[in-house]
């Protein structure tokens, strides 16, 4: 398998506390990798390390054959790494369409230079995630589920080769969940590699090709969903969490 992203011995320490400890894995082209683990396991930290919002204390990141350690977030975005934020971050003063247009204007390869074309791309992506009807509203007028879709559309407008999704399905109802799963699958079918953080177990199980489990910052399991979810260490991590 042709690896789009290789993570080698990645660690992040915050003044004594180790949030991510020596994590290594590879993500193949067109693969959907699920990242799960109890709260505080270091999942979002890992995404922040890959997107460049945080610098690792140790370890190496290789994206499409080139080391991206030390590159600022915008350079990684230009290389083709797009992400969503768990705490949704629309640009509240802009319309929904212009929120997405920012992704098109600045994404992979530096983005589209032409504003009209960027808006057209934005509209296409909004259509794709089902938000075309609210394109002209201000972004802060959107409700929770629509904000999740907006996050997704913003990342997609960047035309990324690697998509990092941080809990885009939390709080969605069953039919919304299925729609979003279908969207992510379609994105993957276009050749995009996807790293998904998710708590909704049913969704992640059906969506992921492979699962990665973090616990206290360490990788405790990796493999197919069926295999991983029956792993005693994983069960313990989750049940242990429940008993607290």
């Amino acid at each position: 398998m042709d690896a789009v992203l290789s993570v080698n011995g990645l660690s992040k320490r915050f003044s004594g506390l180790t949030a991510v400890a020596h994590v290594s894995f590879e993500l193949g082209r067109g693969e959907i990798l699920g990242l799960i683990g109890p709260n505080g396991a270091g999942k979002t930290t890992l995404v922040n390390l890959i997107s460049g919002a945080l610098e690792p204390s140790d370890g190496e990141l290789v994206f499409e054959g080139r080391s991206i350690g030390g590159l600022p977030p915008f350079r990684r975005a230009h290389l083709g790494i797009g992400r969503t934020f768990q705490i949704m971050r629309p640009f509240p003063g802009l319309t929904v369409r212009d929120n997405v247009a920012v992704g098109a204007l600045f994404g992979t390869g530096g983005g589209e230079r032409d504003l009209a074309k960027a808006r057209a791309i934005a509209h296409e992506k909004l259509d794709f995630v089902g938000l075309a009807r609210v394109a002209d509203r201000p972004a802060d007028a959107l409700g929770g589920p629509d904000r999740k879709r907006l996050e997704l559309a913003k990342a997609l407008a960047m035309n990324p080769r690697l998509l990092l999704l941080d809990e885009v399905m939390a709080g969605l109802n069953l039919s919304e969940l299925e729609e979003v799963i279908a969207i992510i699958r379609k994105v993957r079918d276009g050749g995009v590699s996807v790293l998904v953080i998710e708590h909704v177990m049913k969704a992640i199980r059906s969506l992921s090709d492979r699962l990665l489990v973090l616990h206290h910052g360490e990788m405790i399991a990796e493999g197919t969903p069926e295999h991983v979810l029956e792993d005693p260490a994983v069960v313990e991590a989750y049940l242990g969490k429940r008993r607290e």
């Binding site: 975005a77 600045f106 990342a155």
Partner: peptide
């Protein structure tokens, strides 16, 4: 657009490719 994105949310702007 880059400036407004910075004003509205600088971290998100950076992760979308705004220098």
């Amino acid at each position: 657009f880059g400036l407004v994105a910075i004003r509205e949310n600088e971290e998100a702007a950076a992760s979308m490719g705004v220098d």
